[in-house]
C-alpha cells in the first residue's frame, strides 16, 4: 500500500473528472473525515485516513482490500474504473441518464443502452461524456460514456446506441472473483 505518484494521481483524477467534473474536489476535500487514495496491488482504494492508518500495520501479502476500490491500473498504465466506485460517482455525477424498467435487465447484463430504453437524460450532455445510469426510481445501476450528444439523440432510430456500457452492478455477480 502506498500513495499514488503524481502521474498516477493525474490519470485517476482525469478519469474521475470525466464523470463528476468539478465535484472531484468534494471527494478530495471532504468535510466529515479526511479520505485519501492508496494504491495496493495495482488497485486504487479510496479510504478514510483512520482505516488507512490501521491498514499500515497489515503486511502486504495479507492485505486484501481496504476502503472502497475505485478501479485498477492496467499493465499499460491506464486506469479502469470499477463498479465499486459507483457510490461516489452517483453521489457527485454531473451528467445522468435514466433508463426505463424494460431496459434495466439488458444493461445489467453488460449491454449498451439503446435509445428505446432511454427514459431521461441530462440536457446538454456532450458526446463521449462519462455519465451515471439510473433506473427510473433513481437507483444507480452503473456508468457509461455517451455515444451522441443530447441534441443528436433526437434524430436517431430506437435501436441506436446512446450510452456505451462501462460498468454495471451486475458485475458484482458476474466478476465476483476478480472485482475486488
Amino acid at each position: 500500500m502506498r500513495p499514488l505518484t503524481e502521474d498516477e494521481s493525474k490519470i485517476v483524477f482525469t478519469k474521475l473528472a470525466n464523470y463528476v467534473g468539478k465535484n472531484l474536489i468534494h471527494l478530495i476535500d471532504r468535510a466529515d473525515e479526511p479520505h485519501c487514495l492508496r494504491l495496493h496491488k495495482d488497485r486504487v482504494f479510496y479510504v478514510s485516513e483512520s482505516s488507512m492508518r490501521l491498514a499500515i500495520s497489515i503486511a502486504k501479502p495479507n492485505l486484501v482490500s481496504l476502503g472502497t476500490c475505485f478501479g485498477k491500473f492496467s499493465k499499460s498504465g491506464k486506469f479502469k474504473l470499477h463498479i465499486t466506485a459507483l457510490d461516489y460517482l452517483a453521489q457527485y455525477a454531473k451528467y445522468k441518464v435514466w433508463i426505463k424498467p424494460n431496459g434495466e435487465m439488458p444493461f445489467l447484463y453488460g449491454n449498451h443502452v439503446l435509445k428505446a430504453h432511454l427514459g431521461r437524460i441530462t440536457e446538454d450532455t456532450p458526446e463521449h461524456q462519462g455519465v451515471v445510469i439510473y433506473s427510473m426510481s433513481d437507483v444507480p445501476l452503473g456508468f457509461g460514456v455517451t455515444a451522441r450528444s443530447t441534441i443528436d439523440t433526437r434524430k436517431l432510430d430506437p435501436t441506436a446506441i446512446i450510452v456505451f456500457h462501462q460498468a454495471d452492478v451486475g458485475e458484482y455477480l458476474r466478476d465476483e472473483e476478480t472485482l475486488f
Binding site: 500513495p3 474536489i25 479526511p34 485519501c36 492508496r38 488507512m52
Partner: peptide
Amino acid sequence: FEPAEVSSSTEKSHNLAILSKL
C-alpha cells in the same frame, strides 16, 4: 514513493495542487 502515513492535510493540498494543474 512517498511514505504511506503522510498527514492528511499535506496529502490533500498535494492532490488539490494536481487538480488545479489539471
